[in-house]
Amino acid sequence: MSRFDLHPAHIDGLVNAGLQFGLIGVFDNLTPVGQMLLQQHQPHRDVEHERGEPPDYAATVTDRALHPIAVLCLLECYEYQTSGTIGWHASEAHAWIQRLRETVLTRLPAEAKATVRHGANYLPAYRLLDAYTETPWGITELDQIPELGDGVIDVPVVRKGLRAEILTGPIHCPNNGLSSHVRYVTILGVGEDRTLPAFARISEPSDDAPGVYLLFQYGRYVARPADAPPGTWFMASGAHIHTGDSRWRELIGHRLPIPLHDRTEP
């Protein structure tokens, strides 16, 4: 991503966040902080800067309660666009941005700060939430920053389960079921309530290891796709699932493979 100059509104967003989260006093002037941030972002851009004079900036104050996760997007964008400037790591702007980040993170639930897998990468969960993704990378108006609203930060539950291998033999008729295109599944729940003990919550489901539930029917466990539409009827395809993980026996009471019911018919 190429560097670009941030709009003054972006600086406004940061200084208003500083006011909201207590880095700037209620009766303090926001403009000097904004000038400091802008001067580090655009060092020696004109003669006035070279003479040590602050850049031409006057803060705009908003009465909107900015969403903490949106603020994280603002400061991460500022940091990305400014980190290549001379003296950044020893600058007052760097120290101020770090203080703002630390303060904002204390306001988030643990689930939002947890590291989660996203595709092939790992990143903080808050970067996947709407307040982050809906905040422009470099705002041009304060109104572009999402508000906190009712004060509740909703973090979707990241589901994890136990990875198992799909076993197939000479008699295998999946009819485009899971076992026709993947070699692994992720067990997300067991029984009628489809819950899973904490000891088995290891891996997130993926396209290569989609989720299944283990249901006890007719005296034995069978595995069925977790994302199937309600009312979908599945039957045995000839495939089974199994894992050598010792937690397998703790889940189902034995070490044997169980049938995978992933075949459907029109």
Score class of each variant (00 low, 15 high):
206 S>C: 11
175 N>I: 00
30 L>E: 08
183 R>N: 13
112 A>G: 11
109 P>L: 04
228 A>C: 10
18 G>I: 11
236 A>N: 14
251 L>S: 05
146 P>T: 03
73 C>Q: 14
11 I>S: 10
44 H>Q: 09
204 E>H: 05
68 P>W: 02
186 T>Q: 06
79 E>G: 05
16 N>I: 03
162 L>I: 12
17 A>H: 08
42 Q>Y: 04
257 P>K: 09
152 V>D: 02
134 E>L: 11
174 P>Q: 07
244 G>D: 14
220 R>L: 08
180 S>T: 04
182 V>S: 07
158 V>S: 11
237 S>K: 06
211 G>R: 03
88 W>F: 14
188 L>Q: 08
159 R>W: 10
124 P>C: 06
20 Q>R: 01
124 P>V: 04
77 C>G: 07
44 H>N: 14
194 R>S: 03
264 T>V: 14
168 T>W: 01
246 S>H: 14
7 H>G: 09
35 Q>K: 13
46 D>Q: 12
158 V>P: 00
31 T>F: 06
207 D>G: 15
126 Y>W: 15
21 F>W: 13
195 T>M: 13
205 P>V: 04
200 A>S: 06
185 V>T: 05
19 L>M: 06
201 R>I: 00
6 L>W: 03
253 G>I: 01
45 R>A: 15
260 L>E: 03
34 G>E: 11
105 L>K: 11
50 E>M: 12
238 G>M: 02
234 F>M: 00
232 T>H: 01
28 D>I: 00
20 Q>E: 14
130 D>W: 08
241 I>N: 03
170 P>I: 09
241 I>C: 09
133 T>Y: 03
112 A>R: 08
107 R>F: 10
153 I>R: 06
53 E>N: 05
165 E>H: 07
237 S>L: 06
2 S>T: 12
203 S>M: 15
89 H>V: 02
260 L>M: 08
219 G>F: 09
125 A>M: 12
24 I>N: 01
166 I>V: 03
50 E>A: 13
95 A>Q: 14
107 R>P: 01
134 E>W: 01
202 I>R: 11
125 A>E: 08
116 V>M: 04
266 P>S: 11
245 D>H: 14
24 I>Y: 02
79 E>M: 02
216 F>I: 00
28 D>A: 13
170 P>G: 13
1 M>R: 08
108 L>R: 06
84 G>V: 01
37 L>I: 07
156 P>T: 11
235 M>C: 13
225 P>M: 07
183 R>Y: 03
257 P>T: 07
265 E>W: 13
188 L>V: 01
226 A>Q: 07
164 A>Q: 05
161 G>Q: 04
106 T>K: 15
140 T>L: 08
227 D>K: 11
99 R>C: 13
174 P>C: 08
185 V>Q: 10
21 F>M: 04
185 V>F: 07
109 P>A: 01
219 G>Y: 06
13 G>Y: 03
141 E>P: 00
208 D>I: 12
236 A>I: 04
176 N>F: 12
193 D>A: 10
25 G>Y: 03
230 P>H: 08
148 L>N: 00
70 A>S: 15
142 L>R: 05
203 S>A: 15
28 D>Y: 01
67 H>S: 04
11 I>H: 00
169 G>Y: 01
131 A>Q: 09
